[in-house]
């Protein structure tokens, strides 16, 4: 009795491990990695260029937040290279210059895994140096940077692949692309978390939430006018549409038959938000993460 129970448990464990291995090592499209590399590096370049003129303002002790205050706000676990040195303006500028060089080299595909590891360290450092200016977009950038370290980023369209002789250049296979699965899981978690948060809100339930969002004078107002939301049916459609899509994505993205429908709906939602709100690069980094579902992945 005990022997057969033990046997079936071992069988179950082996079966689970086999499925986990298939999920991680046999079913992802490694050629997505260079696409993600180019998109990610471009977004980091834009982000760095925008923050460059304010380097001293945001990240030095002669700016708006002292290093010691940042440490007090975030606590001892939040490390930063910028806490280790004198908080002088030139240090912040040097850090941003490094970030720019690493992202430029990553864009070209020059030892991109090293470049993205360095980008990860700098992103953590800058975000922990001034937490008051960061938001969800920065979290996505940071986690994507960590996950990209493990992917064959230079497999195509890269300086490294041009340098490598044919003998040493190995075409990556599905087993090299396991970190794509982690990017997909990260994206799923974001959609699931936001849907669960929203479903509790009264304004999301009664269909008025996006109407209130349209009255935010700082974030809202691009090509879609807030006056559009004077029509209640537009507000209802936008609110419940957003909620429905975000609740659908954690399932839809994982079902092969409807994956492209899910990707299309998500892209529509992000582009709609981009057209109406000023959220910097948030929609673009989400679209990039969504791209991890776009390859020829097997079920």
């Amino acid at each position: 009795m005990i022997g057969s129970l033990l046997g079936s448990m071992i069988g179950l464990a082996r079966d689970s491990l086999r499925r986990w291995d298939h999920f991680l090592f046999e079913s992802c499209d490694p050629l997505l990695a260079p696409v993600l590399r180019i998109g990610f590096a471009l977004l980091i370049v834009i982000q760095t260029l925008c923050v460059w003129p304010d380097a001293a303002y945001w990240y030095s002790d002669s700016g708006v937040l002292k290093s010691q205050t940042a440490e007090q706000i975030l606590g001892p676990q939040a490390w930063s290279l910028l806490h280790c040195s004198d908080s002088e303006p030139w240090i912040a500028q040097l850090g941003l210059l490094c970030l720019m060089i690493h992202s430029g080299l990553m864009l070209l595909g020059c030892y991109s895994r090293f470049q993205v590891a360095a980008i990860f360290v700098w992103l953590v450092s800058f975000q922990n140096r001034n937490p008051l200016i960061t938001d969800g977009e920065d979290t996505v950038f940071r986690i994507l940077a960590f996950l990209l370290i493990w992917l064959p980023l230079d497999a195509k369209w890269s300086v490294t692949s041009l340098w490598d002789s044919k003998k040493t250049h190995r075409t990556p296979s599905a087993k090299d692309a396991w970190a794509l699965r982690l990017i997909q899981i990260q994206m799923t978690v974001i959609y699931a978390s936001t849907a669960l948060c929203k479903i509790e809100g009264e304004t999301w339930q009664n269909g008025s939430a996006v109407g209130y969002v349209s009255r935010m004078t700082d974030n809202f107002g691009r090509w879609i006018s807030p006056e559009w939301f004077d029509w209640p049916w537009i507000t209802l459609l936008a609110t419940w549409g957003t909620l429905a899509i975000e609740a659908f994505l954690p399932f839809g993205l994982w079902i092969p038959k409807i994956r492209w429908l899910a990707i299309g709906l998500a892209a529509l939602m992000h582009l709609g938000i981009e057209a109406s709100m000023n959220l910097f690069l948030f929609q673009w980094v989400m679209l990039l993460g969504l791209g991890s579902f776009a390859g020829r992945s097997k079920a």
């Binding site: 999301w204 009255r215 700082d218």
Partner: peptide, 13 residues
């Protein structure tokens, strides 16, 4: 967590 205007949007004008 990822509130993103949840549970209700906060007007911070």
């Amino acid at each position: 967590d990822w509130p993103l205007f949840a549970p209700n949007p906060v007007l911070n004008n």
